[in-house]
Computed example of a mutant assay.
Amino acid sequence: MSRASRLLAAARQAGATIATAESCTAGLIAGAITEVAGSSDVFDRGFVTYTNAAKQQMLGVAAKTLAAHGAVSEEVAREMAEGALARSDATLAVAVTGIAGPGGSEHKPEGRVCFGLARTGQATRTETVDFGTLGRTQVRAATVTHALDLLIGALNS
């Protein structure tokens, strides 16, 4: 059974609905979930917010948060996840923002992705994963896998 199928089964059992807020993956997480037939009873919507302006307009990420921490930060991932939850009918939202590559900097290297996980009635969790210089396609694929695992973990806890 695929990760997405396991996620959908866990969400159905928990009575949860899911939203995604994606920057560096540009909809790949939503695509992985909706690749499974019948996902519409669990998946509510996905937000692709590639630019800072989109993060602000669609998810309510604060300009001061972006200015203080940059788009690739746990603070922005938190606001993205909380914004997706607030602007959807979902009960669980995952957000990702990162540097898939090529490029990066000493402080924010290629392969760094920040994750946010927001759930109705619970504190939002964030984490940062440094996937390394795997290449753009592999960083994005690893991000999708990790995001699905975070959602499954949240539903099974």
Rank of each mutant, 00 (worst) to 15 (best):
G103P: 04
G104R: 11
G104I: 12
G104E: 13
G104A: 13
E106R: 08
H107R: 14
H107Y: 03
H107F: 01
K108M: 02
K108I: 04
P109V: 13
P109F: 14
E110Y: 05
E110R: 08
G111W: 04
R112T: 15
V113N: 07
V113C: 09
V113W: 00
C114M: 01
C114F: 02
F115I: 04
F115W: 01
G116Q: 10
G116N: 08
A118D: 06
A118V: 07
R119Q: 15
R119L: 08
R119F: 05
R119W: 07
R119D: 01
G121I: 07
G121S: 10
G121H: 09
Q122F: 13
A123E: 13
A123P: 02
A123Y: 04
A123C: 00
R125F: 04
R125P: 03
T126C: 13
E127W: 04
E127T: 10
T128I: 08
T128M: 06
V129D: 05
V129F: 03
V129T: 12
V129M: 11
D130M: 12
F131W: 04
F131I: 10
G132C: 05
G132M: 06
T133R: 15
L134K: 10
G135Q: 08
G135E: 09
R136Y: 06
T137W: 03
T137D: 15
T137F: 06
Q138D: 15
Q138N: 14
Q138M: 13
V139P: 02
R140C: 11
A141D: 12
A141L: 10
A142T: 10
V144Y: 01
V144S: 05
T145A: 14
T145L: 11
H146G: 04
A147M: 05
L148C: 02
L148G: 04
